[in-house]
């Protein structure tokens, strides 16, 4: 039982980690809680399913195209909504983010309807619906292995982009000091756009994986997932990419264990309680830098 909970928690946690990375990267470069990130995650799932059902594309192609579409949505979101507010009070940007989240969520409700849809199973490659191995009462499906592989692969890729490429270096420079980065000749807006694209792509992948894993997608799915991923980002130390990954996994496991052993009614409560506890006890999170704005 415990092993099964751990496996389920790990699967969920890796998905949270994928979303959390998007929050934390955006927060790192522009200090904005991008509330609309959960909606990008939802759009990822819907784009993928629509491309499969309406355009008849094969699964992998549809997934790739959905991810690209979401990356573009992320860039557009930044250009249309956030860029004009770079010098406005922080609260204005935050309200804009929440406003965009509400806007996108209800737009999806109008386009795709409020009922939850199943993921088109027939479009999936055959092996994804099979059980990989079963030891005693503990089962591990190919789907879970697929999620592990994709999530870990994406994060390795992200790590390489951030640490080894020119634009990754620019992102880190921006996170440290925007003015100094601009003085060094970094095109600030382009780097911010790139950050949004990267974060949104990761979020879209997470959305697609969740839609397959739970075999359901609905327009409001972004809210809870977004909040939990945000909790994961806080848990790991907001602004820290490895922290967001670690935070996601810890939160997923904590949630699975909490739901299994404490009370499944408070499944969502675990995330909030962990978030509050971390902020109160150690605001910098597991791997974050020390917080200086304490009064």
């Amino acid at each position: 039982m415990l092993e099964q909970q751990l496996i389920n928690g790990l699967t969920l946690g890796l998905i949270y980690a994928l979303i959390a990375v998007g929050y934390t990267m955006v927060y790192g470069v522009i200090q904005l809680i991008n509330f609309a990130h959960g909606e990008i995650y939802m759009l990822g799932a819907f784009f993928c399913v629509t491309l499969i059902t309406a355009a008849g594309l094969p699964f992998y192609v549809a997934m790739l195209m959905a991810v690209v579409c979401c990356a573009m949505c992320g860039i557009l979101l930044d250009i249309i909504a956030y860029r004009p507010l770079r010098r406005a009070p922080r609260l204005a940007a935050l309200i804009t983010a929440i406003g965009m989240s509400i806007f996108l969520q209800n737009l999806a409700l109008i386009i795709w309807g409020s009922r939850s849809k199943p993921f088109p199973r027939t479009a999936l490659p055959g092996y994804l619906t099979e059980q990989a191995l079963t030891v005693g009462s503990v089962g591990l499906s190919w789907l879970q292995l697929f999620i592990f592989a994709v999530a870990i692969g994406m994060m390795l890729l992200l790590y390489l982009v951030i640490q080894k490429t020119r634009i990754g270096t620019a992102m880190r420079a921006l996170a440290q000091n925007r003015t100094a980065a601009a003085l060094m000749g970094i095109n600030v807006n382009r780097v911010i756009s790139f950050t949004f694209a990267l974060g949104s792509a990761m979020g879209a992948v997470a959305g697609i994986l969740v839609a397959i894993y739970y075999n359901t997608l609905y327009p409001t799915m972004g809210y809870t997932a977004g909040v939990k991923a945000f909790a994961a980002a806080v848990l790991g130390g907001i602004g820290s990419v490895p922290g967001a990954m670690a935070g996601g996994v810890v939160l997923g496991v904590a949630e699975a264990l909490g739901a299994g052993y404490v009370s499944s009614l408070y499944r969502d409560g675990v995330a909030y309680a962990v978030m509050i506890a971390v902020i109160v006890l150690r605001p910098s999170g597991i791997l974050g830098r020390a917080v200086t704005d304490k009064a």
């Binding site: 927060y27 200090q31 809680i33 922080r90 935050l94 945000f230 806080v234 907001i238 978030m275 509050i276 902020i279 109160v280 605001p283 917080v291 704005d293 304490k294 009064a295």
Partner: peptide, 10 residues
Amino acid sequence: RLTGDYFAIV
């Protein structure tokens, strides 16, 4: 004790 976004999140 916290300010800014941390307090907002709590």
